[in-house]
Design a protein around this nucleic acid. Structure first.
Lengths: 73, 73, 73, 73
DNA sequence: GTGGTCTAGACCACC
DNA sequence: GTGGTCTAGACCACT
């Protein structure tokens, strides 16, 4: 983790790793749950997820959840 | 439209009005189409739609479209 | 209040009214407090304040608060 | 810069880097100046700065300037 | 000079 | 066709 300039880059990496085995449209755990799992703050997870949405790796449906998109590599 | 300080506020109002009759998850026209319909630039429509996404009124799935969310009013 | 198409327009009106007597740079109550005072949801206040920031009537300093700006008319 | 998927992510990174040594409430250069310095368009800088404001890293006072917020790291 | 809005195009990746 | 990014200008209000 030391090699990441920002924590959220680390979180992004971990999420990418985690979802690489998942089907497209799989629902992820909530951001607060992920935060607890990684022992990291909610805001950091929020930022990481947001970036992954921008990257097209995840997509969000408000009030429903975050899902694996089709640009997972 | 004259009563709106900014065009994007006008666009927000028009979209809110338009979708008030629509079911959740209804797909909207593309942003470029909306721009043409309103005789307004694409980037301005993007800003309005983005605001409505922040408000939880719409949600976007990248490369797929923009949809009515469940926080309409 | 019936004459407002959206609640947040009503809230905007009330806030404008309230701050019209205040000095520039006066700190407002928190958005959740305002929500309770008006008996209205936090999200609605959030939206109203956001619009007033866009209008230059209020400005926000993250983690610190919302303040009366100099465009109060 | 090549390692960033989008220019605005590069700009975000550069600004984060730049302000990491600065005091809270330090005023940044104007967005057009930053754009020229980085040889990039004004609207792209605006998007990056907007993201950093959402992140709580910067805050803006309209017509006055952009400042370092207290959530720097 | 500042942030804010707006235009009228462009190219990209993906579906 | 979709959303997303980006450009290179413009005009505005206010400081």
């Amino acid at each position: 983790m030391d090699k990441f300039a920002y924590k959220y880059l680390f979180v992004e990496y971990r999420i990418r790793e985690f979802i690489s085995n998942l089907e497209v449209d799989t629902k992820l755990n909530g951001e607060r749950t992920i935060a607890k799992e990684l022992g990291i703050s909610y805001m950091t997870v929020r930022k990481a997820v947001e970036n992954l949405v921008v990257d097209g790796v995840l997509y969000k449906i408000p009030k429903r959840g975050t899902y694996v998109a089709d640009r997972v590599r």
